[in-house]
Amino acid sequence: MNTKQTIAGAGLAIGLGLIAIASVIGFDTMQMQVPPSYARVGPQIFPYIIAIGLAATGAHIAWKSYRGGDEVIDEVEPTDWKSVGIIVAGLIAHMNLLKPLGFVPAGVILFLSVAFAFGSRRYGRDAIVGFLLVLLAYVGFTYGLGLQLPPGILKGLL
C-alpha cells in the first residue's frame, strides 16, 4: 500500500516538475527583447512550443499518476539515499575544492566518496589507488597535453 502511494507521489512530483520547467521557459521567453528579422519566426517561437509541450506532457504524467495509473513506475528495489547522498556530497566538495586545494586533493576526495558510497571499507587501498590515479592524470595531462588543471596546494611541487 505504501509503495503504491510513493509511486503515485513520484509521478505527480515529476509531472509537476515538468510543468514548473515549462513555466520557467515561458516566463523567461516573455522577457526577451526581439530585434526585427526577416524570418518572421523570432527567437521566441521555439521556446514557447517546447514550453507548451513540456507542460502538456507534465500534466499528462501527473494526471495519470493521480488517477493511479502506472505512468511512472518505481518497481525497482528501495533507493539507498545514503549512498546517493555521499556521492552528491563528494561531487559538491570536488567542485568547490578544485580551485583552492587543486586537482589532486579534490580528485582524491571525490574518488574516496564514490568508493565509500559503493560500499568499500578498505580505506587504505582506496586512498592509494585514488591518489595514484589522480596524480597520473594530473601529470599526464599537464605535461603531455598542456591542459590547465589547477595545481592548488601542490603548486611548485609538481
Partner: peptide, 20 residues
Amino acid sequence: IPQPLLYGGILVFSTLGVYS
C-alpha cells in the same frame, strides 16, 4: 575491477574532461 574503484575512476575522469 571492483565497482568502488571503477566508479571512483569514472567520476574522476568525467569531471576532469568536463572541467577542461
